[in-house]
Amino acid sequence: MISLIAALAVDRVIGMENAMPWNLPADLAWFKRNTLNKPVIMGRHTWESIGRPLPGRKNIILSSQPGTDDRVTWVKSVDEAIAACGDVPEIMVIGGGRVYEQFLPKAQKLYLTHIDAEVEGDTHFPDYEPDDWESVFSEFHDADAQNSHSYCFEILERR
């Protein structure tokens, strides 16, 4: 099963200049909980913004210009990325925008964090048809001392 995991502000903004323009430790914990011990696929820009392999996960970098870091697996196509994951129950696609666009048609599940923030962004989550998805989990949280904005975790499964 292919799943996408993303944090989205208003207007589906997911990033600005290779960074997330908010401070939500709870979302980072949600991300870790849902990706640990699963292969993660990301684009080169996302890889560069993280700066290191995510521990406890097979890191697969999709790029037309593969790098030389041998701590991760470099691939040039969506099919190659899927094959590099091996026989696993769930593959997690973690961004960025172009990689989400490439995998959305193949995805069966979306793990979304909806952030109540209007922020400037240069990267967006692809538009998706809500009628194609069923919400199977939703959990709202107010902003607090650690988390700069209110947010809602949601899991959607393709109908």
Results as ranks from 00 to 15, higher is better:
I5H: 00
I5T: 00
A6I: 15
A6M: 12
A6N: 14
A6G: 06
A7V: 01
A7I: 03
L8S: 02
L8G: 02
L8E: 08
A9E: 01
A9M: 02
A9C: 08
V10I: 02
D11A: 12
D11E: 12
D11H: 02
D11P: 07
R12A: 03
R12I: 03
R12S: 08
V13E: 03
V13Q: 02
I14V: 14
I14S: 01
I14C: 13
G15S: 00
G15R: 01
M16D: 02
M16H: 01
M16G: 01
E17Q: 01
E17S: 04
N18Q: 15
N18R: 05
A19M: 04
A19C: 12
P21N: 03
L24M: 00
L24S: 03
L24E: 11
L24A: 14
L24D: 13
P25F: 14
P25R: 05
A26R: 02
A26N: 02
A29S: 04
A29H: 02
A29Q: 10
A29I: 01
A29E: 07
W30T: 14
W30S: 15
W30L: 15
K32Y: 04
K32A: 03
K32H: 03
K32C: 02
R33M: 11
R33W: 04
R33F: 11
N34S: 09
N34F: 04
N34C: 08
T35S: 04
T35C: 03
N37G: 05
N37P: 03
K38N: 15
P39I: 05
V40A: 14
V40P: 00
V40D: 00
I41V: 15
I41M: 04
I41N: 00
M42Y: 14
M42Q: 13
R44V: 05
R44T: 09
H45W: 03
H45Y: 02
H45I: 01
H45R: 02
T46A: 01
W47T: 07
W47P: 01
W47Q: 15
W47Y: 15
E48G: 15
E48R: 14
S49L: 01
S49E: 03
G51S: 06
G51V: 11
G51E: 14
G51A: 08
G51Y: 07
G51T: 14
R52T: 11
P53Y: 09
L54F: 08
L54T: 01
P55F: 11
P55L: 09
P55D: 10
P55W: 08
P55C: 08
G56N: 04
G56E: 07
K58D: 09
K58C: 09
I60A: 08
I60R: 00
I61Q: 01
S63M: 08
S63R: 06
S63W: 05
S63G: 13
S63C: 14
S64L: 12
S64A: 12
S64T: 05
S64R: 11
S64I: 11
Q65N: 05
P66H: 12
G67C: 12
G67P: 14
G67E: 14
T68P: 12
T68L: 09
T68Y: 09
T68F: 12
T68M: 02
D69W: 12
D69S: 10
D70W: 07
R71M: 06
T73G: 08
T73H: 08
W74K: 05
V75K: 09
V75H: 07
V75C: 05
V75Q: 09
V75Y: 06
K76Q: 08
K76E: 14
K76R: 06
S77H: 10
S77Q: 13
V78Y: 14
D79H: 09
D79I: 07
D79W: 05
D79T: 10
E80T: 11
E80Y: 11
A81W: 03
A81L: 12
I82K: 09
A83Y: 06
A83F: 11
A84Y: 11
A84E: 04
A84H: 12
C85H: 15
C85R: 07
C85D: 05
G86A: 09
G86I: 13
G86V: 13
G86F: 10
G86M: 10
D87M: 11
P89V: 09
P89W: 09
P89I: 05
E90Y: 04
E90M: 03
I91C: 15
I91L: 15
M92A: 14
M92C: 15
V93S: 04
G97W: 00
G97H: 01
G97K: 02
G97C: 02
G97P: 00
R98P: 00
R98Y: 15
V99Q: 01
Y100G: 00
Y100P: 03
Y100T: 00
Y100W: 12
E101M: 10
E101A: 07
E101R: 09
E101T: 06
E101H: 10
Q102M: 11
F103N: 04
F103W: 07
F103H: 07
L104V: 01
P105V: 07
P105T: 11
P105E: 09
P105I: 06
Q108A: 07
K109N: 12
Y111M: 10
L112A: 04
L112G: 01
L112K: 03
T113G: 00
H114R: 15
I115R: 00
I115W: 03
D116Y: 15
E118P: 14
V119F: 00
V119H: 03
D122G: 01
D122P: 01
T123S: 08
T123Q: 02
H124Y: 03
H124S: 13
H124T: 13
H124P: 12
H124N: 10
F125L: 14
F125I: 10
P126D: 15
P126E: 09
P126M: 14
D127K: 14
Y128V: 06
Y128D: 04
E129T: 10
P130N: 11
P130M: 13
P130W: 13
D131L: 06
D131F: 10
D131P: 09
D132P: 12
W133P: 02
W133I: 03
S135G: 10
S135R: 15
V136G: 11
V136M: 10
F137C: 15
F137A: 11
F137Y: 03
S138Q: 14
E139K: 08
E139M: 07
F140E: 14
F140R: 13
F140D: 13
F140I: 14
H141Y: 07
H141Q: 05
D142F: 12
D142N: 09
D142K: 11
D142S: 10
D142M: 10
D142H: 12
A143S: 07
A143Q: 06
Q146T: 07
Q146C: 11
Q146D: 09
Q146N: 08
Q146H: 08
N147S: 09
N147H: 04
S148I: 01
S148H: 00
S148M: 00
H149A: 03
H149N: 04
H149T: 06
S150Y: 05
S150V: 03
S150H: 05
S150C: 05
Y151N: 10
C152V: 09
F153C: 12
F153T: 09
E154D: 14
E154A: 15
E154K: 15
I155N: 03
I155V: 06
L156S: 14
L156N: 06
L156D: 04
L156I: 10
E157Q: 11
E157K: 10
E157D: 09
E157P: 02
E157H: 05
R158C: 07
R159T: 11
